[in-house]
Computed example of a mutant assay.
Amino acid sequence: MAKIEPTVVTPASTEPPVSTPPPASGPAPEAMAPAAEPRKLDQLSRIEEKAARIEEKFARYEAVLTRAEASLERSAQKVDAAAGTMDFAAIRGEIAALRSRIDATPRAGTLFVTALVTAVLTVILTILVLKFGVPGLFGGLLPR
Rank of each mutant, 00 (worst) to 15 (best):
I127Q: 06
R60I: 14
I95W: 06
P6K: 09
F132P: 00
P27Q: 09
L44N: 11
A104Y: 03
L128Y: 07
T118R: 02
E94H: 08
P34I: 06
G26S: 15
V123Y: 06
P27I: 09
T85S: 15
G136R: 07
G26M: 08
V123E: 04
A70Y: 00
A108S: 08
V120M: 08
P16Q: 13
G139C: 00
I102C: 02
E15I: 13
V120W: 02
D103N: 10
R67H: 05
R74K: 10
T66M: 05
E62C: 04
T118Y: 03
V117N: 05
A89V: 12
A76P: 00
L128T: 11
P143A: 11
S13T: 10
A31R: 06
E15W: 02
G109M: 03
G84C: 01
Y61M: 04
S19N: 03
A59C: 01
Y61P: 00
A36G: 02
R74I: 02
K50P: 00
V79S: 03
A108Y: 04
R60C: 01
T66G: 13
A119V: 08
E94G: 14
G136M: 07
L137Q: 05
D42F: 05
P34V: 13
R107I: 06
T122M: 12
A97H: 06
R67D: 15
K40N: 09
A81Y: 03
L65H: 08
A31I: 11
L41Y: 02
T85R: 15
R53I: 01
A28F: 02
V113D: 13
A119Q: 10
I102G: 02
V134S: 02
V117R: 07
S45Q: 12
F112L: 14
V134R: 07
A90D: 10
A82Y: 08
E56W: 00
E73P: 00
R60S: 08
I102S: 04
L116I: 09
V64Q: 15
L142K: 03
S45M: 05
E62V: 02
S25N: 13
V120Y: 03
L44D: 15
F138M: 08
I4L: 10
V113Q: 08
L72W: 04
E49G: 11
A52C: 00
R67V: 10
L111H: 07
T110G: 07
F58D: 11
R144W: 05
F132I: 06
A28H: 13
A89H: 09
L72N: 12
A52T: 12
E49L: 12
T10S: 12
T20H: 11
K131P: 00
L44Q: 15
T20A: 10
P143H: 08
Q77G: 08
P106Q: 06
A63D: 15
V123N: 01
L121Y: 05
T7H: 09
P23H: 07
V9H: 15
I102M: 09
A108G: 04
V8T: 12
E73N: 09
L121D: 07
T126R: 05
G84F: 03
